[in-house]
């Protein structure tokens, strides 16, 4: 029996397949305007790749469109992305107690107990300052890819202060710095630092207990990761997988735990 999980975010969508308690495949795509189509597409491509029929897989959904996918019959059940990230990370490493997940529009700090159950969580409210979209908008303004943006932290000598919290006003600040011919590395490093600070204050609302890991798309930004480790005084545990698939993996694990005994 195969178990699958789909996770649709605002920028990307993932699918993961589990067989006999191990990951047999995963896929990550850019989203389509409709989240249900995104989930079907990413899972469809993955199933095709491993050559499995959808009928042989129990799928759990998470992220945007998770309920619709259950209504459609595509997924068997749906679980919130908060629990999925917690479970996925715990399954990969049972020492994990805190997961910081930064997606396109959401930043969440998730605390789990010694059994991998959700103990507490906090999400950003109505402000995109600490999210992937924030980085994406600034990267575009700087004419950098997201990866390049991350690397700039290590090339900068004097990071600028990005003070605006609003993504759009921060973009104006970035443009102002560029017009005033500040080095691109310093502006980019300022963006990464400002992002890390937002996450830090969010994390303090629920507290950060070791071990800690960073998931979601922003985990791939080495600059933010570095700044966040510095400010939190922790070293993030590497889960050994693409940090963007942790949500979809969690969903697949929930499917396995619930239907694996059949």
């Amino acid at each position: 029996m195969l178990f699958g999980g789909t996770d649709v975010g605002s920028l990307t969508a993932q699918a993961v397949l589990l067989e006999d308690g191990r990951i047999t495949g995963y896929r990550n795509i850019r989203v389509l305007p409709n989240p249900v189509e995104s989930a079907k597409k990413v899972m469809g491509e993955l199933l095709e790749e491993v050559g499995v029929s959808p009928d042989d897989v129990v799928i759990f959904s998470t992220g945007y469109g998770r309920e619709k996918l259950v209504e459609d019959g595509f997924a068997k059940e749906h679980v919130s992305e908060i629990s999925c990230h917690g479970r996925g990370a715990f399954w990969l490493n049972p020492a994990i107690r805190t997961i910081i997940d930064i997606g396109g529009q959401d930043a969440k700090v998730i605390r789990i107990d010694g059994n991998g159950n959700l103990a507490n969580f906090v999400m950003n409210d109505k402000c995109a300052a600490g999210t992937g979209r924030f980085l994406e908008i600034q990267a575009r303004a700087l004419g950098l890819t997201l990866d390049e943006l991350g690397e700039m932290t290590f090339k900068a000598s004097n990071p600028v202060a990005i003070t605006a919290r609003c993504s759009i006003y921060a973009e104006t600040e970035v443009l102002h710095y560029m017009q005033r011919k500040f080095p691109k590395e310093d502006i980019a490093a300022g963006v990464n630092r400002s992002m890390a600070e937002r996450i830090y204050y969010l994390a303090r609302r629920v507290g950060v207990e070791r071990e800690v890991t960073l998931t979601g798309g922003v985990a791939k930004n080495r600059g933010v990761k570095h700044e966040l480790e510095k400010i939190l005084g922790v070293k993030f545990v590497d889960l050994g997988v693409d940090p963007q698939i942790v949500g979809a993996l969690g969903a697949a694990i929930f499917a396995m735990e619930k239907y694996g005994g059949e």
Partner: peptide, 9 residues
């Protein structure tokens, strides 16, 4: 920022 970390809006 410290007040924010306590949950003040």
């Amino acid at each position: 920022d410290y007040a924010m970390s306590l949950g003040i809006p």
